[in-house]
Amino acid sequence: MAMKKSFKGLFYTPYILWLAMFVIAPVALIIYYSFFDIHHQFTLSNYRVFFESGTYLTMTANSVLYAFLITVISILISYPMALVISKLKHRDLWILLVILPTWINLLLKAYAFIGLLSRDGLVNNLFEFFGIPAQQMLFTDTSFILVAAYIQIPFMILPIYNSMTDISDSYIRASSDLGATKWQTLTKIIIPMTMPGIKSGIQIVFIPSLSLFMLSRLIGGNKIITLGTAVEEHFLTTMNWGMGSTIGVVLIISMVVVMLFTNTKRKGRRS
């Protein structure tokens, strides 16, 4: 028995090492750096600056607003899609096709969208074909939100799809046997039972959407400034790691808040 126990400990070691090196240490460092100003003096001024400056607060509000919109749009697209795919015959193949774009680098996808949305791009060519005058699409809020939602959709579909395939057919059959309409089955059975999937989708999508600095520059033309833009600037241009870390801490705290709001109590959900 004793040997078995030490063997078990051996299996835990990589996990604990991983946690310590790549989760706890970086977060601790970010918190540590956030207490230093550009002159390497210990101070709380970074936090004071953050919460007193209109710039950072507006930026935070902007980030939350855009992340919220991106998340809502990706749910609206992903949910019906996951529902349809889970009913298909070769659903594993279809879900693979949905995941496929995540194998392509984010930057490449962004450049592809530049090609589509630019003044002489494919979309405008189509518009002209149908007699609609060319539109300015790049560097607008709409295109930024749509491209961001496109990039996040696979991460939203997967958990929802998984929770849908977990639902046993007998529930659906039981509800129709008991006289529920299709709509009632959807709202009373399927949506409540896929809630954990939706919640983990929100967790995966909302947080990265707070700081999409690459997209806000490439597609948004820096007309939309989110916290990510400020983090990039503080680490790369002004070398003010303290302020950059402070924003990082704010992002981490907002992540914790989102986690708390979308926390799923697994107890008693399934026997």
Binding site: I38, H39, T55, T58, M59, N62, N222, K223, I225, T229, A230, E233, T237, T238, M239, N240, M243
Partner: peptide, 19 residues
């Protein structure tokens, strides 16, 4: 100086956020 670099960048950021 780092303080002035920061000021240039902060003001520039404010300009980028101005609509």
């Amino acid at each position: 100086s780092p303080t002035k670099v920061q000021q240039y960048n902060d003001l520039y950021l404010e300009f980028k956020m101005h609509h």
